[in-house]
Amino acid sequence: PEEVRRLVEELYRKGVSPEQVKKILKKQGIDEREIEKVLRRIG
């Protein structure tokens, strides 16, 4: 979803590592598979 992409990109631009991005967003209840999809697209 758009909102997940925005959150991931925001953290990524701040220099947060992909592993940390995953941890942070998982705590917020976001599906890990969604996060990984976005990270793959960015990375």
Score class of each variant (00 low, 15 high):
L39I: 07
R33T: 11
D31R: 04
G15P: 01
E2M: 13
K26R: 13
E34G: 02
E9H: 11
K37F: 05
E10A: 15
D31F: 02
R40V: 10
L25I: 02
K37M: 10
V4M: 10
K37A: 13
I42E: 03
V21W: 03
Q28L: 12
V4Y: 05
K37G: 05
I30P: 00
E32N: 04
E3T: 11
E32A: 07
L25F: 03
I24Y: 08
Y12D: 02
V38S: 05
I24V: 09
E3Y: 11
V16Q: 08
D31N: 07
P1C: 05
I30D: 00
R13C: 06
V16N: 09
L7P: 00
L25A: 02
R33D: 14
K23D: 10
E36K: 04
V8E: 00
R6I: 08
L39N: 01
L25D: 00
L11D: 00
E9P: 00
V21S: 02
K22G: 04
K37L: 13
L7H: 04
Q28D: 05
E19I: 10
V8W: 02
E36C: 06
L39W: 01
Q20N: 12
Q20P: 00
I35F: 02
V38T: 05
R41G: 15
V16R: 12
Q20I: 08
D31S: 09
I35K: 00
G29P: 01
K27I: 10
K22V: 14
E34D: 10
V21P: 00
V38R: 01
E3M: 11
S17M: 07
K26F: 09
S17I: 06
K14V: 06
V8L: 03
E34L: 14
R41Q: 15
L39Q: 04
K22Q: 05
V4Q: 02
V21T: 07
K22W: 14
S17L: 08
D31W: 03
K26N: 05
L25W: 00
I35L: 04
E10P: 01
D31K: 05
R40L: 11
I42S: 04
R5W: 15
G29S: 03
Y12W: 10
Q28Y: 12
L39T: 03
V21K: 00
E10R: 12
Y12Q: 05
D31Y: 03
E9T: 11
E36N: 06
I30Y: 14
D31G: 06
I30R: 02
I42C: 06
S17T: 10
P18H: 05
R33C: 05
K27L: 14
K27P: 04
I42A: 05
V16S: 07
E10I: 12
E32Y: 02
V4R: 02
G43P: 10
R41C: 08
K37I: 09
K27W: 09
E36Y: 03
P18S: 11
E9D: 06
R6D: 04
K26C: 04
R6Y: 07
E9K: 09
K14W: 10
R5I: 10
K27G: 12
